[in-house]
Design a protein around this nucleic acid. Structure first.
Lengths: 205, 205
DNA sequence: TGTACATCAGTGAACGCGCGTTCACTGATGTAC
DNA sequence: TGTACATCAGTGAACGCGCGTTCACTGATGTAC
């Protein structure tokens, strides 16, 4: 990644990477374009060869995040194999794994305040990624007797909220209160209890 | 709240209020001391008569938040009346109600990055407020057969995470994705399903 | 293979700005007598 | 009730700083012939 001479080589990628590192450390509003440039070994002005400005750089980071996230979720879901239930649980784990492995992306996507509507490209990437979660929920909810089946969007909203809550409260350097449980266990057990409440897993397990 | 003359009267309160408004609008790192002073109709330097600096002002806002939050939670819990279950559900609703009614406080408390350990006073207020949630969880979990009872801290962590997730994703001006359900319903139904999963409410309700 | 030249990706100086914090100050308030 | 004075809560000017953005520029690269 070391700059070789006058030309950087892949400044665009280096800037996004710097942006992600900083955004992870300082939060989205604490991120500065100048510092990202510095981290890449480049003048702040050079950023404008690749991005329209500060916001545009963050949006690029978020887009990259949604792409990775979408891939991960799709892979975890695996078209509902081996079963709707297993596939669903796998997406939950993938959500947390993504948040852990790509914290900068996660923040750029969900805490930076950049709108998903910013560009059609960003919108499409986000819709695709979050769509996997909903698809998984829809498929799984078919197994609930129709009359006691909650709307699938509600179902997936519950799971998303629980996952996001675990990430924000227990998976990051949080406001002092650490849970005594690893976030993975917390999410897994939480989803398990929830699914039992829907009659989707055996009550004695 | 209009300033009357050379002396403001209750600058301290006005500054906290301004801090909360700004923190709600721009997020914790977007908040500036100068703007809070401006909003109160006062020179930035005047702030230093009442607070040690920027951080201290945010901490004061968070402290106020934990106090209100603690009161609300304690009131909702009502010492477990009329039943452990009802009282527990009431604290869940109170959590969301607090986040809705005091969004600035909520952000100062949970997103500003100020440590709960900052002062003993802040620590005590936070412990008290979050303690109510755990107390409610402990009491309720007594109703679960001992061998299938999850640790109460896990129980309360699940509920806290779900509540926080609903707040962050669906209760604020969020990253584009709005749920078609009111956050209150989302949380209520989510908690309901979860409790059913624990065998704490009837499976047919 | 060598040369001329267009294109591209960076520089570096400059801009105006708002920030947090400090300082000596001053106007208003309240208390002692 | 009136006056002297200490205390308090504000002012306003100044500081050094880093920010995002612009601009004319220049060094490196790659292509045409």
């Amino acid at each position: 990644m070391a700059k070789r001479g006058y030309h950087h080589g892949n400044l665009r990628e280096a800037l996004i990477k710097g942006c992600l590192t900083l955004i992870e450390k300082r939060g989205p509003t604490g991120f500065t374009l100048s510092e990202a440039a510095r981290e890449a070994g480049v003048t702040p002005a050079a950023v404008y060869r690749h991005f329209e400005g500060r916001e545009d750089l963050i949006a690029a980071a978020a887009l990259q995040g949604y792409d990775i996230f979408g891939d991960l979720m799709a892979f975890a879901y695996a078209d509902g194999k081996p079963s709707d239930l297993k596939a669903f649980e796998a997406t939950g784990r993938a959500y947390l794994a993504f948040a852990n492995k790509y914290p900068g992306h996660y923040v750029a996507m969900f805490e930076s305040g950049i709108s998903i509507q910013r560009t059609p490209e960003l919108n499409a990437a986000a819709k695709r990624a979050l769509g996997v979660l909903e698809t998984a929920a829809v498929a799984l909810s078919q197994h609930i007797p129709e009359e006691k089946r909650p709307p699938p969007q509600m179902f997936s909203a519950h799971i998303w909220a629980l996952s996001h809550g675990v990430v924000e409260l227990f998976s990051r350097g949080s406001p002092g209160t650490k849970s005594p449980f690893p976030p993975e266990d917390l999410l897994e057990s939480g989803i398990g209890i929830y699914l039992r409440g829907l009659g989707l897993v055996a009550p004695d397990s």
